[in-house]
Each structure stands twice: as C-alpha cells, then as structure tokens.
Design a protein around this nucleic acid. Sequence first.
DNA 1: TCGATATGCAATATATACTTGACATGATGA
DNA 2: TCATCATGTCAAGTATATATTGCATATCGA
Lengths: 70, 70
Amino acid sequence: MKAGIKLKMARVEHDLTQAKLAEKVGVTRQTIGLIESGGYNPTLHLCIAIAKALGKTLNDLFWEESDHEG
Amino acid sequence: MKAGIKLKMARVEHDLTQAKLAEKVGVTRQTIGLIESGGYNPTLHLCIAIAKALGKTLNDLFWEESDHEG
DNA sequence: TCGATATGCAATATATACTTGACATGATGA
DNA sequence: TCATCATGTCAAGTATATATTGCATATCGA
C-alpha cells in the first residue's frame, strides 16, 4: 500500500482539503501534498500533529503491518 | 513522559548499545543519543526503522496517549 | 593504573524537510 | 464563458536532521 494513501483517506474522511489540514498542523499545503503522494519522509513531530488533527494515531496513518512482519 | 525514554527502555530491553542500534538502523550513535535525550525531531523513516529493529510499533515508541487526549 | 566500552557534548559539513511563489489542469457554479 | 477551488508540480531559498570528528566522563575488568 502506498505510503500516503491512508493519510489521504483520513483527510477526506474529515472533509478537509490539503490546504485546511496544512493550516491545522502548521505547514504548507505543498508539504501535505508531498506526503500524500509518497516518496517523502516527514518528521515525527509533523506525523504526530497530523495524526492528532485527524483523530488518529501514528500507527493508523504511518505504520504498515507488512513493514513489521517482513 | 519524556520523548525518548520509551526508546531507551526498548533498546536496553534488547541489550543493545546506542552504537549497535544505530548500526542496525543505519545511522550514527549520536543520532540515537539525540533522539533518546529528547528535544530532537527524527524523520518518519528513521522512526520506522528503529521500531522494526526493536520489534515495536510507532505507537509503542513514539506515541504518547496524553498527546492524543489533550 | 591501564585499556576498552558506553554515553554526553560540541563544531563543522552535507543532505533534505519545509517554505514561498508561481503556473497548469480539472471540477464546480454563476 | 468566467471565477473559484482543489490538486499537482516546479524552482529557489531557509531551517534542520544527520554525519563526521574529537574530547570528556564513568564504568568495568586485568
């Protein structure tokens, strides 16, 4: 599963645009867009801010069980 | 609870030094030390690599329930 | 005491996360 | 058609994560 897709789904679930989510977590919309499109490596603090803004946890948005299992 | 303490406990649990954990995840021991001492903002990929190396998840090591609750 | 290991701290250098500003496209509505 | 919104992307700049090197301290064992 692509890296940012869970984030995108959670965002849409909350009826937020990239720009609105970006504002909530204190970054620019480009940063959110880059994370959702993958190939990007956000910082932990930003991941936590995003998770909190969407009522999710780090694992919900950024942990792939297959990563863990092998 | 201080940011890096869970990481430190998990590391000690596995009988790993900062240097050995650093080697496992492909960073220097200073980077591990800085994360454990807090006041540092690692990248998501590094957090995931650390969690995998210690048999934990992102939430186990980097999520504080109080962050989420308020 | 001496040597090895583990950690903390600090200065400099490099890679990259993130910003700012701009332009392009498709969808929506007046 | 025209205006607005949402998203994608590009280019240049700033902030900071991480590397590299070195030194200091504490612990452990010979």
